[in-house]
Each structure stands twice: as C-alpha cells, then as structure tokens.
Design a protein around this nucleic acid. Structure first.
Length: 654
DNA sequence: CTAGGGTTAG
C-alpha cells in the first residue's frame, strides 16, 4: 500500500496496529505510531485506542497511559483496556484512580471493563483485589456473566478462600450459568485446588452434556488430591463414552501419571494418544520426560528427544529444561550439558537443572563452574541453586568451600538458609566425620529441625559409628516419622556394627510392634526398550536361575581377587555364611546381573534403586565394572554412582 | 471499513 504511494488513513491504521500487537513487536508498532503521527492522525480516538492496546500488549504501561491522555474524548473501550492493564501489572492504586477519573469523565463502565480488571488482578496474583472487584461490580448493579465467573474463580486457590468460592458458586446457580462449559471448568478447577473431589464430581454430573474442558479440570483436580487411580478411571470412562478428548486431556493425564509414580502408564499414554491421531505438543513433552527420568528409561527418553526435534518443539525452554533433567536422571550428564548448550534461551530453572544434575552426579568442579557461569551470564541464583551448590560440595567432600558458600548465601545474596540448606550442611560436616560440629549446628538452627536434618545426621553416625549422637538423632526421627522403617534399620545397623545384639533386638521389636517391615529394596533396569523391575529376594523374574548362577560365578572370581563381603549391611543377627547369602539378593545386584546377561560386553548399564545403595553392592559393582568391562550407572535415593574400571565416581564416600 | 474481557496441560 505504501509502495503504491497510498497514505494510510485512520480507518486502516487501527488494523495495522492490531497486527503489530499480535506480533508483540515493539519496534514495528512504534514505526506505525510514527507513520500515523506524520500523516496527521494525532487525535483520532479509535487509532489512539488501538495504540493504547498495543502498548499494553508490549508491556509498556507508561506509553499506554501517555497515548490514552492524548485521546480528546476517551471512550469506555480505551479506558477498560488501560484498567485491565493496570490490574495485570498489579497496580492497585493506579487502577482505583483511573476508575475515579472514568466516573468524572462520565464514562459508563460495562461488564467488559469489570471483567478485565477482575482477570487482571488474578494475573498479578492480587487475588483479594480480584474478589473485591467482583463484589464492586455486583454492587454497581452489574450481573456477573460467564466471563466474570471464570475470571474471578482462579482467585480461589486454597481452603482459606473456599467460602468465597462457594458464594461464587451460588452466583452461578442464581444466574443460571450451570450449563456454561467455561464456568463449569473453572468451578471444577477451583474445587480441585481446594481438595473437594465430591464437589468436583457433583458440578460435572449436573452438566447435561459432559464437556472436554470440565473433564480436563477434573483429571487435574483428582490427581492434585492424590487420586491418580480415580483420574485414570474417569479418563478411560470419558474416552469410552466417545467424549472428544484433546491434547490438553491427554497431557493432563500424562502429567498426572508422571507426577504420581505411574511412569510406565505415562509412557503408554503417550503412545496411545498418537495412535488416536492426536499430536503431542510443547507442553506434552515436559510432562512426559520426568517419567523417563524417574525410571531411567534412557531409550524412551531419547525417543522423546527425537520426537521433539522432529516436531520443532526442542527450542522451547521448558522442553530443553526437561531434557536436561531427564538425561541427568538417566545417568547421562554429558548429554544434559549438550542440551543445555544448544538451548537458544535459558531461564533460572534451566540453569538449576544443569547445576542440580552435576550435584547429583557428584561432579563438584563442574557444578561450581556452572554456578559461576550463570552469574557471569547475568542469571541471579536462587535458594534452589544454593541447595545444589552445597550438595555438590558435600558430595565432593569440599567441607570448607561448602561452609564458605553457606555463609555467602545470606551475606552476599540475601538468601536466608532454609531447612534443605541446613540438611546439606549436616551431610557435609557429617561425611567429613565432624559429627559433633554437625550436631552443634542442628542445635543452633533458627527453625525446628525435621526429618531432612536428623536423617542425614543419623546416616553419618552410621558411617562414622557414632553411637551417642546416633541415638539422639534416631530418637527424634522415631517421633517425627514413626512409620519410616529406614531409621530403625540405620540405628540397628549402628548397634550391629558394635555387636550390641541386645539393642539390635530391641530396635527390631520396636519395628515389629508398629507392624513395620524393612522397605523392600527395589531396582529398575531398562534393557532393549523394556523396563524390568527387580525386588530384593525376587523369585518372580523368569531369568532368576541364570541371575543366581551369574552372581555365584562372580562371587568366586571376586574371592579369588581378595574380596570380603561387607556383612554389617545385613540387619539380622545371623551366621556369617547366611549374611553373605542375604547380601546376594539385594535388588541392585540382581538388576546388574540381568543387564550383564542380556546385553553384549561393553554396553553400559543403568540401574535405579528405591533405597540407598548398600556398601557391599557398591564393592561388588565396582568389581563387576572392571571384571566385565562395563560402565554401570546406579542412581540411588541420594545420588549417582558411575562405576568404571573398578572405581566409582563417588570416591567411595556417600 | 476501525478499538476492549474468560477456563482446563508444564
């Protein structure tokens, strides 16, 4: 149009401005603004109105206001846009002032104006103001419509606000909006956040025809209240009934599974959704990837990575971050790094994912390098970054450096230490054998220590055979988490290592009287795209005879080279010979043996375990890594062990 | 011929 020599008038310009707002391109919009100005359109209301909207879209509140003030006779539309803009930014005072000015100018506000402010305040997390606006709207004589309801409901996010939510539900019924799908979705979401599963179902049942949005909110709500089984049941039921489930439905269900320990189900759902002809998007991928990481399903994870490359979502910052996390959890920290380096954009979470990965792998030097690098790149660390830094120092035995970072955190960064930071410090001091110092720190903490403090203290007492402090820590843990069998096992391990069998027995009696049993050890290993689960003392796996035979052969080889079993990891007071046999059926050994049997020499294995790896298994796997020429990754609840050529990356300290 | 508001997945 311009190259034809036609100068744009005040009719076409608002459309052009709208297009630039859609692009969120500040530069282009400003050019159009200039163009309008030189063409003499200084004071056209509609044009200036569209510019107000444009500047708001680009997050330029001041400019938007300046343009608004040049409108000769501002109308409701422009004013409403500015009002919602102020609310979106959380400018409560400005919103109220402008509201006053609007009345002075004689502007008649309408529902759209109110709804914009209500939604805006929720956007800026000013939930109370959102609800106040909803009330004001009502007292100004406006009846809430469907938009008002779904705009205000996100303000009700917890039990404290539930009474407000119930009142709003009352409005819904009174205004006859019970069949409005958007309203119902928001209501279900609200009851889900307030942990009211019965109310969720009730609202859905009252719908004449179930809506996919309400279904999605229901699935998320059920999983949020810890009921994945229920969510899966409803999901299958809706699918059977022929409800048109969309990407959001499938993604919600996948997220719900991967967040609640149903990792295999999440992978299966991903496959199914594609068979149903639905295309996973850039949200589906980061919902699914944690499932791969949780069970160290590296092949599945790589397949998902390929999928994201093929479908052009791999540049998404959430996808990239989830990939970093997945590879780290699958034992491939170098691949995490490669993903990180190839990301076009990163945020705090991406940096923390890499930092946490290095910490979990005990790569202290790399973790500290990344910590420096992130700051050089202008990314401020947060409390999570410090948790990883301290944990890395603890894993690497950098006691003094750890103390330095701990002090620096509050002094130089203004981040007050939380429980998890103290927890790292207890591990840090404890592993250095400075048990008394660790205990002193616990006693001086400004907050009440919980299980994440006493637990590591007890563990280090177990490693360093400190009976006195171990007993104190154990007593606290028995109060705080009476049903956690691990604590009883640790204390009895300390007694057992000192041959105090009477005490060992009394701890075992305590466990028995509470009906507690030692948590069954459980390991997973992925072989040729199939994930195998092995339990301690497993008899179910079809290859069990071969596994036992393999382990027997290995034991003979080990004894030839002077290996002695670490029998103090066996709880029971039994004969030495039996103890050795008990060590032999630990699940991590079974998983490694299964891997050896089913893959060719030189192929790396990765195993994950639901408890901490035991000292004997650690020694055995070190031997295997050399004897069988295998790299073996074992992830336990605490960290990664990378076995290679007879040594472990943890340096035998964990 | 032109300008304004909402829910459900990370």
């Amino acid at each position: 149009m311009l190259s034809q020599g036609i100068s744009p008038d005040c009719y076409v310009l608002p459309s052009v401005v709208k297009a630039t707002a859609g692009l969120s391109s500040l530069k282009t919009g400003v050019q159009v603004h200039c163009l309008a100005f030189v063409n003499g359109h200084h004071s056209d209301s509609l044009l200036l109105s569209s510019l107000v909207h444009f500047y708001l879209k680009c997050d330029r509140l001041m400019e938007a206001r300046k343009v608004f003030d040049r409108i000769p006779r501002p109308n409701v539309v422009a004013c409403s846009a500015l009002l919602s803009g102020y609310a979106r930014k959380g400018c409560v005072e400005e919103t109220k002032e402008l509201l006053g000015e609007a009345v002075e100018m004689g502007l008649e506000l309408n529902s759209v104006s109110w709804n914009g402010m209500i939604a805006g305040f929720n956007h800026s997390r000013h939930f109370k103001d959102s609800i106040l606006m909803f009330r004001d709207m009502h007292s100004e004589g406006f009846k809430p419509d469907g938009t008002s309801i779904s705009s205000v409901l996100p303000a009700v996010g917890d039990l404290e606000m539930l009474p407000c939510g119930v009142q709003i539900h009352g409005c819904v019924i009174k205004q006859g909006l019970s069949q409005d799908n958007w309203v119902v979705s928001s209501l279900v979401d609200m009851y889900g956040k307030c942990a009211r599963p019965n109310e969720m179902s009730k609202v859905c049942e009252e719908l004449h025809e179930m809506d996919v949005g309400a279904c999605n909110a229901l699935i998320t709500g059920l999983s949020r209240t810890g009921c994945v089984e229920g969510a899966l049941k409803r999901f299958k039921q809706f699918k059977r009934q022929g409800l048109n489930l969309n990407v959001v439905s499938w993604t919600s269900m996948i997220a719900s599974c991967s967040q609640n320990g149903k990792d295999m189900e999440a992978l299966e759902l991903f496959r199914e959704m594609q068979m149903e002809g639905l295309k996973p998007n850039s949200v589906t991928i980061p919902c699914l990837l944690p499932a791969c990481g949780n069970i160290a399903a590296l092949m599945h994870g790589k397949a998902v990575h390929c999928f994201s490359l093929k479908n052009w979502v791999s540049n998404d910052v959430y996808v990239g971050t989830a990939l970093i996390d997945m590879y780290a959890n699958c034992g491939r920290i170098q691949l995490s790094r490669r993903c990180f380096d190839s990301m076009p954009r990163r945020n705090l979470v991406s940096w923390n994912a890499l930092l946490g990965g290095y910490a979990m792998h005990g790569k202290t030097k790399e973790a500290l390098e990344v910590f420096n690098l992130m700051q050089k790149s202008g990314q401020e660390p947060d409390f999570i970054s410090f948790t990883s830094v301290l944990s890395a120092c603890s894993q690497g035995g950098l006691t003094e450096e750890g103390k330095f970072y701990f002090d620096s955190m509050s002094k130089d960064y203004g981040i007050e230490p939380r429980l998890e930071h103290y927890s790292c410090m207890v591990s840090l001091l404890g592993r250095a054998g400075r048990i008394v110092e660790a205990y002193t720190m616990v006693k001086q903490m400004p907050m009440e220590p919980d299980g994440c403090i006493w637990g590591p203290l007890l563990s280090s007492c177990r490693v360093h055979h400190n009976l006195a402090i171990g007993e104190i820590a154990a007593r606290k843990l028995f109060e705080l988490e009476p049903n956690n069998p691990g604590n009883y096992v640790l204390l009895s391990n300390i007694y057992a290592s000192k041959s105090m069998w009477v005490e060992v027995n009394s701890v075992r009696e305590m466990m028995k009287s509470k009906g507690l049993r030692k948590n069954p050890g459980c390991s997973w290993i992925e072989i040729k795209n199939k994930v195998h689960m092995l339990l301690a003392g497993d008899n179910l796996h079809p290859q069990m005879p071969e596994i036992t035979k393999k382990l027997g052969e290995l034991r003979v080889e080990m004894q030839k080279s002077g290996y002695l079993p670490h029998t103090d990891f066996v709880l029971q007071d039994v004969e030495e010979q039996d103890k050795e046999e008990m060590l032999c059926d630990h699940s991590e050994k079974l998983a490694v043996a299964l891997g050896l049997l089913n893959t060719s020499r030189g192929f790396p294995l990765q195993v994950i375990k639901n408890l901490r790896i035991c000292g004997d298994c650690h020694a055995v796997i070190k031997f295997i890594s050399e004897f069988e020429d295998r790299e073996i990754f074992v992830r336990d609840t605490n960290r990664f062990h990378h076995f290679k050529d007879g040594a472990c990356s943890c340096g035998d300290l964990w």
